[in-house]
């Protein structure tokens, strides 16, 4: 899959100036980029636009050759369910569902696999993040790190073509951060998925060949790191 962003600009209704102003980005399957920026720099807005949750004021998002915002809202929902994984900064697990049920959720919305396979797939996902035995626990019964790992398993459950991770290591210690980042990067690489990580964690810089800084909504590409 190729992700192409053209002339992206977004201004919130009550804001005087755009929160996001990005000329163009093109990412191919398997590419992984690190997006750096302080709070309020527009990272989450960019992610919401890329996920099809927020229609930009101007510009377009193309997945392969299809314009995301030319799709109906229902079609965008389906596209998001099937092709986009999203790891939120605050995990956003649903408290009334167990860890396993949280992971089943995107599979159910994607409807790309038979319902009988959802729980098995979710168990495999939890197994991959080291939580095979904790599927029956509710989010309140998990530590912060465990919740994040459930969120990662949920984001990866549908094997998305694009994975958006917003500050995935912010609430983790160094060791757990390494585990989560390894998991995100190896899984995306294995499935040829695009990975975009928004973080201001300096420990992540070395992990990415492509980096971009968001400053006051403006996207500025850093030099490509050569292996």
């Amino acid at each position: 899959m190729i992700l192409r962003v053209e002339g992206l600009r977004h201004t919130y209704p009550d804001a005087a100036r755009p929160v996001l102003d990005a000329e163009s980005i093109t990412l191919s399957g398997g590419e992984q980029i690190l997006l750096r920026g302080v709070s309020g720099s527009g990272k989450t807005t960019l992610f919401n636009i890329l996920a099809g949750l927020l229609r930009p004021t101007a510009g377009a998002i193309y997945y392969d050759d299809g314009s995301l915002y030319n799709l109906s809202e229902a079609a965008r929902d389906r596209f998001r369910a099937q092709h986009i994984g999203y790891v939120f900064q605050t995990h956003h697990l649903i408290p009334s569902l167990t860890a396993l049920e949280n992971v089943v959720m995107p599979l159910a919305f994607a409807r790309a696999t038979p319902p009988g396979t959802w729980r098995t797939a979710a168990r495999d996902g939890l197994d991959r993040v080291g939580l095979a035995d904790l599927g029956g626990r509710y989010p309140r019964q998990l530590s912060t790190g465990q919740r994040l790992r459930v969120a990662v398993a949920r984001a990866l459950a549908t094997r998305p073509r694009v994975l958006l991770a917003d500050e995935p290591t912010a609430a983790l210690d160094d060791e757990a951060g390494v585990v989560v980042m390894d998991l995100l990067q190896t899984t995306c690489a294995a499935h040829d998925a695009i990975l975009i990580v928004a973080s201001h964690d300096p420990a992540l810089v070395e992990r990415f060949e492509r980096r971009a800084d968001l400053r006051a909504g403006h996207l500025m590409w850093a030099e490509r790191m050569l292996a």
Binding site: L53, D77, R80, A81, F109
Partner: peptide, 16 residues
């Protein structure tokens, strides 16, 4: 409302 927003962000439609 937060839970509903999470469901929507994971691909649930408004009709869901």
């Amino acid at each position: 409302e937060r839970d509903i927003a999470i469901m929507r962000s994971l691909g649930a439609g408004r009709t869901n």
